[in-house]
């Protein structure tokens, strides 16, 4: 059967189930149907050999990446040799993948035209996930900051018998004078109150 007619078996190794789900959806949208997810590291190599995939995608936060490197070795256990997907001339693709936080291992002899779109999908999904995570982190830290400022306002309101707007104005003025962020001033107020309290 010609290489292009055979459906590719893809294994996703990702410690993050959320990201793995996003990845799998992306690959399914691109027409791939045989996708297996592995989220733990138990007996990894034996499981991969049992699946006998064409393409393995692994996130770079995963120590098991070194386990996959064993697939390059000459061994009776390996039925099909696995090579790096990208050849020497294609370092831009490697760089893009590593930058996005993912690495790919592909069985030797698989046509480059078949692998490129898979990697492109992977890279774009990894980037999208990283962006999502960064936004979530930012939202979380903004929420934390607001809580800190609210606590500091409360302390000032009680100590100085002022209202909320006046308390906020005090924090803002101190921040301007000291060239600091309001949240930093708020944290100092809380720390001071705890020490004096």
């Amino acid at each position: 059967m010609p290489d292009r007619d055979r459906p590719l078996k893809i294994v996703l190794i990702d410690a993050s189930p959320e990201r793995a789900a996003i990845m799998e959806q992306g690959l399914r949208d691109a027409g791939h149907t045989t996708i297996m997810r592995i989220t733990d590291h138990v007996n990894l190599l034996a499981r991969i050999y049992a699946i006998d995939p064409d393409v393995i995608l692994i996130d770079l936060e995963n120590p098991s990446r070194d386990v996959l490197e064993q697939m390059f070795q000459v061994s009776r256990a390996v039925r099909r040799p696995v090579g790096m997907f990208v050849d020497q001339s294609d370092s831009a693709s490697i760089e893009a993948a590593i930058d996005a936080g993912v690495s790919a291992y592909v069985v030797d002899g698989l046509k480059r035209e078949r692998v490129q779109p898979i990697l492109a999908t992977t890279i774009s999904r990894f980037r999208a996930f990283a962006k999502l995570r960064a936004e979530l982190e930012q939202a979380k830290s903004q929420l934390e900051e607001r809580k800190t400022v609210d606590r500091a306002k409360g302390i000032l309101m009680r100590a100085k018998k002022i209202d909320e707007d006046e308390a906020y104005a005090l924090l803002r003025k101190a921040a301007m004078n000291e060239k600091k962020k309001i949240v930093e001033i708020a944290q100092s107020v809380i720390t001071a109150a705890e020490l004096l309290g």
Partner: peptide
Amino acid sequence: EVSWANIRDRLTLGH
């Protein structure tokens, strides 16, 4: 880093 493969790749890529 978490893997030798990562260290190797990030060194060769100039990270």
